[in-house]
Amino acid sequence: MAPQLSHKPKLAVWKFASCDGCQLSLLDCEDELLALTAEVEVAYFPEASSAEMKGPYDLSLVEGSITTSHDAERIHQVRRVSKHLVTIGACATSGGIQALRNFKDVKEFTSIVYARPEYINTLSKSTAIADHVFVDFELRGCPINKYQLLEVINAFLHDRKPNIPTYSVCVECKRRGNLCVMVAHGTPCLGPVTQAGCQALCPTYHRGCYGCYGPMESPNTQALSQEWQKLGVSAVDLVRAYRSFNAYAEAFRKESDRHEP
């Protein structure tokens, strides 16, 4: 295929409430970045460039969750100028760690951190992008896997479905030949209910998965909680485990609610 430089697809990267780690993953593609920018026009990516090309954009990557009324409006503008919109990371996909406010009174949170809470403009809940606009694809992870990110960009540039498995971390763990940390060492692990994508990183480092990729497709969280209880995990710790970086993802939220004292 002959390169048509003037018709390179336009890529935009948008930030909402987040730590910047997922968009940094794009810059962390040290070996691929220049090849990528030869194929796509980085049209809007304020963290990396002060150039700003007008939309519409062929592909928008959205990092972060919606936590302010201003951002709740801004995401609609982003959707309007985006042919495809892909969320990257746990914040954009499930509300992120900042969704822990959703279980509490945000006013109390504000007054814990700020001396003058009346200056703070914030919504009572931190919500996923898909709660506000149509999302073409959600890429999981806290942070995302940069190779999965390249796959998703590639897929959208070629009008095909991204090849991102929705099975559990257990599958990756078996493939790596890891000993099961839960069976062999009695270490509580969220791997059986967490979506793959990290290459079973935590079990490979002899620790239990802490669920940073969020729930897999149709997870059996109840069965896993029973296993954890057999290992002596308290209800309080079960709630903590489900309420972390994907606390407001439906499957984790419901399971955490079941164990709340």
Partner: peptide, 18 residues
């Protein structure tokens, strides 16, 4: 204009190891 995320608030009640 980075929206606040309230880390110091939600750390309360979490385990030291987290």
């Amino acid at each position: 204009f980075e929206p606040p995320r309230f880390f110091e608030a939600f750390l309360r009640g979490r385990k030291y190891s987290e």
